[in-house]
């Protein structure tokens, strides 16, 4: 058993699966980070992922085009993100409560549409998933090649997003405005920034990314949709943002750890590891729990996170 775990084949498959499973969490976490930097804590991204997964699957299935599905999954997420933005920015609602509502609303909506459109038969329609595109030459490197250079195109795209996000946050005026609004909205307002508008856009963008993170699951990984497809991944993304201290590179590390916990579950299941399978199923959640307790503690983050900004009142 142990020599099986430490074999090259196992390691290669495990690392490749880790990156594949980290990708949806990373996409979602990157979007959530943008929203949080503007001062809006969107706890509904778990639900938005579920909705993105459903819409992505549905449109792909109807149109036969995976890219159309992926696009619409993100758009659906964007609509919900905009709703979160309106409620928390325009109406100054409590963001924790709103986020919980969005989470439950989106889960209910996806399951409602799924029942209506695909019924409750046990035979589920399947999609072909996005193919892996090996990069010539590089993919032949042992272990590393299979992990980094033989993935589907969304994985490559997400990895390329990281330097892009770093550049955006540090080098562009938009990135600086975003942080200003999240750190001190009053000062930002006084300096002429449109606080409400920036927060709204950031939250909409965060919702869109969560929709894409969800749409990734049926389109690039499972090839089917069930109501519990995304389960827990949105909350993992929220944990990843705090673990990464709101910086893209740190979040990559966090997403890889959660990706690894899912990959480990699948690998152990596939090799008939002698543990009741319920314990394998709970493994990602248990690892998340332990990880959060050990490494994700309070403090840090944008100073105005989750605080409504009311222009007319003084603090």
């Amino acid at each position: 058993m142990l020599d099986q775990i430490f074999s090259v084949v196992f390691l290669t498959g495990f690392l490749a699966a880790t990156l594949r499973m980290a990708t949806p969490i990373l996409i979602t976490a990157l979007g959530e980070m943008i929203a949080e930097r503007s001062g809006i804590l969107n706890l509904g991204i778990e639900g938005i992922m579920v909705l993105g997964a459903f819409v992505g699957f549905w449109v792909s299935y109807q149109s036969g085009d995976l890219w159309q599905g992926f696009l619409w999954g993100g758009l659906a997420g964007g609509i919900i993100g905009a709703l979160m933005g309106i409620v928390s920015v325009r109406f100054h609602a409590n963001q924790i409560v709103t986020g919980l509502g969005i989470w439950i609303l989106c889960q209910g909506l996806s399951s409602f549409l799924n029942r209506r459109i695909f019924g409750i038969s046990s035979v589920r329609p399947q999609l072909p998933t996005l193919p892996a595109i090996p990069i010539p030459g590089l993919s032949k490197i042992p272990i590393l090649g299979e992990t980094l250079f033989n993935q589907n195109i969304i994985v490559y795209g997400t990895l390329l997003l990281i330097p892009l996000f770093i550049y955006f946050l540090r080098q562009t005026s938009w990135g600086l405005h975003l942080s200003a609004v999240g750190e001190n909205p009053r000062a930002a307002d006084a300096a002429g920034l449109r606080v409400e508008w920036i927060r709204f856009l950031a939250t909409t963008f965060g919702g869109m990314m969560a929709g894409w993170g969800g749409a990734y699951l049926p389109i690039a990984f499972y090839g089917l949709y069930t109501d519990d497809l995304a389960v827990g991944r949105g909350w993992m993304a929220i944990a990843v943002v705090a673990f990464g201290r709101w910086s893209p590179l740190g979040m990559l590390a966090g997403a890889l750890i959660f990706g690894a916990s899912s990959a480990l579950q699948y690998r152990l299941q596939a090799m008939n590891f002698p543990l009741p399978y319920q314990f394998l199923l709970m493994l990602p959640f248990l690892i998340t729990l332990i990880f959060v307790v050990l490494f994700v503690r309070g403090g840090g983050g944008p100073a105005a996170l989750a605080k409504p900004y009311i222009r007319t009142q003084s603090e």
Partner: peptide, 28 residues
């Protein structure tokens, strides 16, 4: 009407509560 419509209503209730009732309580 599929059963999950009740979870849609549940979610809408929570969002609306966030807008209405909690508004007056300031910090909460």
């Amino acid at each position: 009407v599929p059963v999950p419509v009740i979870y849609v209503i549940e979610g809408v209730v929570i969002v609306l509560v966030a807008v209405s009732i909690f508004r007056r309580k300031g910090s909460l």
